[in-house]
């Protein structure tokens, strides 16, 4: 464990909590892509199957359970409790265009052709594109509430810190997980455009982020 990965995990947890509390307290999921949240719940489900087969550490187990619970709780808020405020019109990204290539690639490019390994690989590839429906929804509506942009900021920060974690681990331990790194770089690139808008608009105190 290193400071980059620990702070990355904390940012990830903060992002998930920000989103959950935003929906819970505003009793609305307007502007939130339910599809992205479904994809994230799928990412955690397919990645954390080893929760029952491999014990890494208390921290690892606790964080996996927390991420799973919060992901499904958020999905249930969007699709059940506050479903009247779910803007399915704007949340129109065709997720099958993500799931099919990701599933296909996880069968082609993996470390070993075993169910657990293929599901893990699927979750790695899927995580790199899971935010796209949310980013697409923001471009479609042309705006995002500032709390939603803070959610995306912490999510992007978590990914950026993971890149630093991999540099550190390669330098310190010679650790290099090619699938995770390549997929993580692609995922972080998707946040670059958002980061630009975030730093130039939201942090300028304009509150809402409106796209040009």
């Amino acid at each position: 464990m290193n400071i980059f990965r620990l702070s990355g995990d904390v940012c990830h947890l903060v992002a998930i909590i920000i989103l959950f509390l935003k929906i819970w307290r505003s009793k609305s999921c307007a502007g939130i892509s339910g599809k992205s949240q479904l994809l994230f719940a799928l990412v955690f489900t397919t990645r954390y199957l080893d929760l029952f087969t491999a014990f890494i550490s208390i921290y690892n187990t606790v964080m996996k359970v927390v991420f799973l619970v919060l992901a499904y709780a958020t999905v249930s808020l969007i699709y059940f409790r506050f479903r009247k405020s779910y803007d399915s019109e704007s949340d129109s990204f065709r997720v099958e265009f993500l799931l099919v290539p990701v599933a296909g690639l996880s069968f082609l490019e993996n470390y070993s052709f075993t169910p657990l390994e293929i599901l893990w690989t699927f979750s790695i590839y899927l995580e790199s594109v899971a935010i796209l429906p949310q980013l697409f929804m923001i471009t479609k509506t042309g705006e995002a509430e500032s709390i939603t942009t803070h959610y995306l900021f912490f999510l992007g920060l978590y990914r950026t810190l993971y890149l630093a974690n991999w540099v550190w681990r390669y330098h310190e331990e010679g650790f290099f997980d090619q699938i995770a790194v390549v997929s993580g770089v692609v995922q972080t690139i998707f946040y670059c455009d958002f980061f630009y808008l975030y730093f130039t608009r939201v942090l300028r105190g304009s509150g809402k982020m409106t796209l040009p």
């Binding site: 990965r5 995990d9 990645r47 491999a54 890494i56 690892n60 390994e117 290099f176 997980d177």
Partner: peptide, 10 residues
């Protein structure tokens, strides 16, 4: 080979 590594990252 990476798959021998425990998947210790979240």
């Amino acid at each position: 080979d990476p798959d021998a590594l425990p998947k210790d990252e979240l």
